[in-house]
Design a protein around this nucleic acid. Sequence first.
DNA 1: GTCTATATTTGGATAGAC
DNA 2: GTCTATCCAAATATAGAC
Lengths: 196, 196
Amino acid sequence: MSVSPTRDRRAERHEATRAEILEAAWELAREQGLSGLSLRDLGRKVGMRAQSLYSYFDSKHAIYDALFREGYERFLERREAFETTDDRRADFRRGAREFMEFCLEDPARYQLLFQRTIPGFEPSSSSYALAVRSLDVPRQRFRDMGVEDPAVLDLWTALLTGLVDQQISNDPGGDRWSRLLDEAVDMFFEHLDKEK
Amino acid sequence: MSVSPTRDRRAERHEATRAEILEAAWELAREQGLSGLSLRDLGRKVGMRAQSLYSYFDSKHAIYDALFREGYERFLERREAFETTDDRRADFRRGAREFMEFCLEDPARYQLLFQRTIPGFEPSSSSYALAVRSLDVPRQRFRDMGVEDPAVLDLWTALLTGLVDQQISNDPGGDRWSRLLDEAVDMFFEHLDKEK
DNA sequence: GTCTATATTTGGATAGAC
DNA sequence: GTCTATCCAAATATAGAC
């Protein structure tokens, strides 16, 4: 009788190739834009025909969804690795800087995760759940400061994404808007202090 | 001998059809996204074959450029119709509201004019000049208030587009972010006062 | 699991008749 | 100025051999 091994080498290889495909997809998205991604190019990049990709993903849509999920997983990892201190104000400032760096280091990823401008793509509900979770951390931190009003969090996200957006749209690779971050954070907290 | 008429009815008709095509293009862009625009659909919408559109525009690119120009013309018209008062602060508040309304009343137009996310499209230099001009008005108004630092204008645009962006991306058709505008403007000017 | 072959669709663009 | 006919390219996706 045959003995089934504890490791499934075939499944491991499959998973590794899948990851390789996704990594190549990120590279292509960075090079020629998220919507410029094509299965032909992607296949060529990993050394196979476009058709062979269907052994790993059901459709192009499924690839976008996997990228979306992976992007949020990386985002959450980084957010959860964030170490808080006693100085909550300083934590917010540092958190904002890290958020901005995360966005600017890969504009294609920013577009996929935060802008939803890719035509016809909707993340699956399980992937979308990650996106929802990603706001739990700042929401909790505002609570820790005694701020319960959800509008404060909304204003905060608008301020940060506004800077990121202008930076990407109007000065890609530069720092015309990103260098305004500290001032923007000051402005925000001055306002918050005044409200209380 | 033939007498040349002062009106060129053929040219007028040509111009009218051109305008009709652009209007149809805006509608399609609103319906299925800016990048979803196709010459086939556009032709069908105005009652002709896609190929016939080439009598009016050299390429699809030229259509995008005409839309870009038209969008900024409408934007500038509205900005120039803006009536100022003695209360500059109130003028900024009203101007911000009008800007936001302009953006939200047509997200596809917002994407074309302010986000540059349409793959491979660059406006012609003459069209782009309109975009540059559009910042002259707020720049001058800040000067009128004694503010010369260009970073102030950049922070201002980031604040407004951040609200617009979040509104369009995460609550289309709603007011979750647009209703925060007055508070955001207050926050901005509180900060400006403190700087001086 | 990857390939060849192929289907199917869709898109932008040109040539030439009328 | 609009049409028919056509081209060409690119894209997603399926079937079946190996």
